[in-house]
Nucleic acid binder design. Structure first.
Lengths: 279, 279
DNA sequence: TAGTGGTCTAGACCACAAC
DNA sequence: TTGTGGTCTAGACCACTAG
């Protein structure tokens, strides 16, 4: 592999040397630390290499080359890459390649009481609205006497041109009785109408939960990911005088998002350094 | 495969029929809905089967049998099972088997101001304490003038005998100057001493973020999972008069935990039904 | 059209738990 | 010892992106 290395000598040699270091580290340390899975060891070595030798946005060699370099099967190499992608260190796109991902963005979730009509700039943008029954899991979060028909408002959260989250906001028809039946029965205009009514209600509290999920096909499309991609599912229950006025199920891209809750300190956690937690 | 089916006739036949339904569903629906990955389709079918036909704790056939039943390679079947485990639907244990998982437990995270000394019963239990430098990522969350040496308090959160989370609490030595240098320099006793001092400080705010991570070896051991298992990493910064008094990095099992934040509604989200969100 | 990551296969062996 | 899930291999083909 040292023979045909004469075109673009400088750049190629720099790249070569960085990978050579990593290769060595895999070869040598694997012998001593027995009984550690190859993919895990590989992931650790790659992670450290990314920390010290690579810049955000840099393109990695393709999977077949990398696997050959480290002397493992492509499937094993992929296991390591998948871990790193899960941790937000890498970004992989079919047909394109693998690049070093930027640090996760901190996304404020709690921000006290929000303005439904979207006066706060670049937060949520309403995309659509339909009317019908809510899924059983959501229905269970409403009060027993709430009717079956709800408005389903679709909203997308974008930052710096990248989609961060896709939300489905369920508003029981009984929560917004004043909603005019005259304007558009669906679509973005309808969505804004529902939000305006919700804003008029004046909510007095909320209840939130976060769990890991995998993106459904529709969410994945909005998030520019493949179905099954890991997401953080944020379920929020909004309370008004009468009880639960709305339920929001928001799915955030787990690879790119770090959810922040400013409970009282009101400070933003900064994370712009490249360093990572030591093992 | 219909021949030797005579021992435990009733139970086996019931089990057989349930799987036969799922098999059919895979075979038939795959033809129409083209261009959907097999593992994804398989996951959907299995998920619906779990919803309708299986009880919590039930044991599934082993992976080789299941793969044969559905006519796919074991690796493909495993991709589907991994997804379901990620979603908290299944529990797999090496050497034992695969079982239907109970619904995720709601774990309160915010609970206003806590009592460090652990008077609240079954929450965190201190396990150990060491002293030394903090990892760079954590150090970055402290104020610039904070010294290098911190107390690292290890705590475990358990519920119903199951480990939910493992925490590393970083307390700068400068935050707890009154800490007696006389009692045990490390171990659980030392941990309690540090927490007692922290309690005495009187914190006036906190700052929290949640992101997806994978369990490091030490955390994995505490959580009774394999290294690399998906976890929800909750990073909390505690403020006192002087600034950041402590930083906590808690890793929750993503498969079994749903983090709840009682921001103001103070209600617990109930989730004891078996139903799941429709696709 | 060429090159990338995504899916899938049919094996093999290993670590672990339980009998 | 047996059976389970976990790891690993060396291929193959497909879907997508970009030249």
């Amino acid at each position: 592999m040292v023979t045909t290395l004469r075109q673009e000598p400088l750049i190629n040699n720099v790249a070569e040397s960085r990978w050579a270091i990593a290769e060595d580290r895999v070869g040598t340390t694997q012998l001593e630390s027995v009984q550690e899975p190859k993919y895990w060891h590989l992931k650790t070595v790659l992670s450290e290499a990314l920390d010290s030798d690579f810049a955000v946005g840099e393109i990695l060699p393709n999977e077949r080359d990398l696997a050959a370099r480290f002397g493992v099967a492509r499937a094993t190499l992929r296991q390591a890459l998948e871990q790193l992608e899960l941790e937000g260190r890498l970004q992989r796109r079919r047909g394109v390649g693998t690049t070093v991902a930027p640090p996760r963005v901190g996304v404020a979730v709690s921000t006290a009481q929000q303005d439904w009509t979207g006066g706060t700039g670049e937060a949520w943008q309403p995309a659509d609205c339909t009317t019908g029954p809510a899924p059983a899991v959501v229905q269970a979060l409403f009060d027993a006497d709430t009717g079956d028909t709800v408005h389903r408002v679709r909203r997308i959260r974008v930052s710096h041109g990248q989609p961060l989250a896709a939300e489905l906001l369920y508003v029981p028809a009984s929560s917004v009785p004043a909603l005019s039946a005259i304007d558009a029965p669906s679509g973005p205009a309808r969505a804004r109408s529902v939000l305006r009514e919700l804003d008029r209600l004046g909510l007095n509290g909320q209840d939130r939960s976060v769990e890991l999920g995998s993106a459904r096909a529709d969410d994945a499309k909005e998030l520019d990911r493949l179905p099954g991609a890991p997401v953080l599912v944020v379920t929020t229950r909004y309370f008004a005088a009468g009880g639960t006025a709305a339920v929001s199920v928001a799915t955030y891209r787990a690879d790119t998002c770090r959810l922040t809750f400013g409970d009282s300190g009101a400070l933003e956690i900064r994370h712009d350094d490249q360093e990572r937690q030591a093992s």
